[in-house]
Amino acid sequence: MVKQIAVKDYLAKAKAITQDTDQTRKFFNNVKKILLTLVQIAILVGVSYVILSPIIGFLANSFSSNRDAYNPMVFVLPQYPTLERYSLAILRLDYFPTLVKDLLYTLTVTGVQLLICSMVGYGFARFDFPLKKLLFGCVVVMIVIPSHAIMLPLYLTFRQFDPLGLVSLITGNPINLMGGPIPMYVMSFLGCGLRSGIYIYIFNQFFRGLPKEIEEAALVDGAGVWYTYFRIMLMNAMPSVITVTVLSVVWQFNDTFYAKLFLISDKIVISKALSSLQGNISTLDKILEPTLLELYLDAGIILVLLPIVLIYLLLQRYFIEGVERSGIVG
């Protein structure tokens, strides 16, 4: 009885909807909206899964024990979770000392990049000098030229480092800077570090967007050019400073091209140490089973990613806000 009434109700409603054009349109609009939202949710969830799936895989593998590794019934959640993978990976990666050194290296290079690139960007944005357009074209050229086109000369330059013959004047021989992080510092100091062109471009766009009145006020109040730049303009450029910081930290930390080219040691660049982790474990700990070795590698990957993901999550909110306001978009 109750069912019949309910069905009648629905029928009446359906009749009303089909007969009244206004209601029909409203109904279809609603259906369309719901379907669209569903499609959007599906896409967002799907793509998020594609992005996160390798991390989920690494995490699951890094916690599974030997028994789980060979159990075909285990999927994602290990049955006998263990921390053994992490302890051995930490030992063989020499994790904490290497990480501290790597972070120190990454952060100092980032600091240098920030200083130099913001300076250059400011110079291009606010001063008029002859050949400015041509020189800014050179910045764009720097972004566009793939760094492998200049890798051999860079290698040779730092292999026998001898600026203007000064070094050989003092010590008699050009020095070999390979194996340490010094080449990277030198390049960053001269505004040609890892992707410096992009940072210069970002800063330039942002400074161009700031009102000129700020500097004029500073000038009237008696601030010099450098004081204005460091204390006023740079403080106002916080959004792009954060954007560049995040990009630079992440790219520098992940960089293997320059690390390989300058033969920077595994003790400083932890992502380089990762590639020899499996070999080290198989020779030192006599674990020869590739399936098990892969679990250690997964633990190592998680360990290497952890600090950078933490930094990213900390700065993430400012980063996204900063990107929206900073000069990436001219």
Binding site: F129, G191, Y229
Partner: peptide, 9 residues
């Protein structure tokens, strides 16, 4: 001054 700013680069 402009040249000074872009000098390192």
């Amino acid at each position: 001054t402009g040249y000074l700013f872009i000098l390192p680069w």
